[in-house]
Design a protein around this nucleic acid. Structure first.
Lengths: 160, 160
DNA sequence: CCGGATCCGTTTCGATACTG
DNA sequence: CAGTATCGAAACGGATCCGG
């Protein structure tokens, strides 16, 4: 039974916030999964698999398990279809929203990305309001938690 | 000549801010190095080696090179001692301060760490002031950039 | 089909010894 | 001191297989 990571051998870091945080998402994929949950509203294995840019299924399964173990997300099976799993952020997970927001702003500024400037500017300027709205949507289990609703938006979250 | 990572084979991600950011610090060590520069004021190879909790020297050298290549920091040799390298954050690097601050706050809240609550609370409450001060110190090349100066402080940065 | 688990070749890491 | 060379051990990525 070799998922991918042998949990018993993971290195313990000392108790600094940054160090400990990196135990949870200090790898190539975990933060992307959290973004998918938080910004894009993804919920199923399939969505993560196709959206994260090419993650292997075994690695994805491993990361989901680890993130669940770290209390960042929960997994449960859909009532109507027992085989389809639904992943949701925990409160600990959604509390990462300020970090995610700052990261989006930083990335959009310093690495010319495809992110729509209007959206990013709005997030940078109306920080508190955006975060409050994110939190409200999460509490209501609204599937599109992060983005302000723009009129003619569409699939803008794909760019974030 | 095997440093550690063959740069020519690194996977390109799509142009989303989060994805692109993770190309730079989506691993176990890069963000710790940036924290050491930003929060602790470390500058030399030796300091990073001893402070990051057990990074191998070859990996450290590789990460420093990569971060330099990504424009996050600069390396130059000390005038007095030609062999001693001095690393400093670039503007792009110091612009990551808001992300770092939110990460510190999140980590201190959700993972019982050794971080002093007073300091973290202060950062969370006086966000703008702290970030402004950080930026000011960076511009002046003050070696202790992040922490508010507390009266009897000392080595509190070790806990961040 | 969906959500994984298994197998296996390749890449990266980590520890340590070594060098200018 | 600031790295580089070497090498065994993990982790990754891709493909395939499987239970529900």
């Amino acid at each position: 039974m070799a998922g991918v990571v042998d949990e018993t051998k993971r290195k313990r870091r000392s108790g600094c916030p940054v160090s400990v945080s990196l135990e949870i998402f200090g790898d190539r994929w975990s933060l992307l999964i959290l973004r998918d949950l938080m910004v894009r509203g993804y919920r199923t294995f399939k969505e993560f698999e196709q959206a994260g840019e090419g993650i292997a299924t075994n690695v994805l399964a491993d990361r989901l398990r680890r993130l669940e173990g770290a209390g960042m997300l929960t997994r449960k099976m859909e009532d109507s279809d027992g085989r389809r799993g639904i992943y949701r952020l925990t409160e600990k997970g959604i509390d990462l929203a300020p970090v995610m927001l700052e990261l989006l702003v930083w990335g959009a500024r310093h690495e010319q990305t495809g992110a729509p400037c209007g959206v990013i500017d709005h997030m940078a300027t109306n920080r508190e309001a955006v975060l409050k709205e994110v939190r409200r949507r999460w509490e209501e289990q609204d599937p599109t938690p992060f983005l302000p609703r723009f009129q003619g938006s569409g699939l803008k979250t794909q760019k974030l």
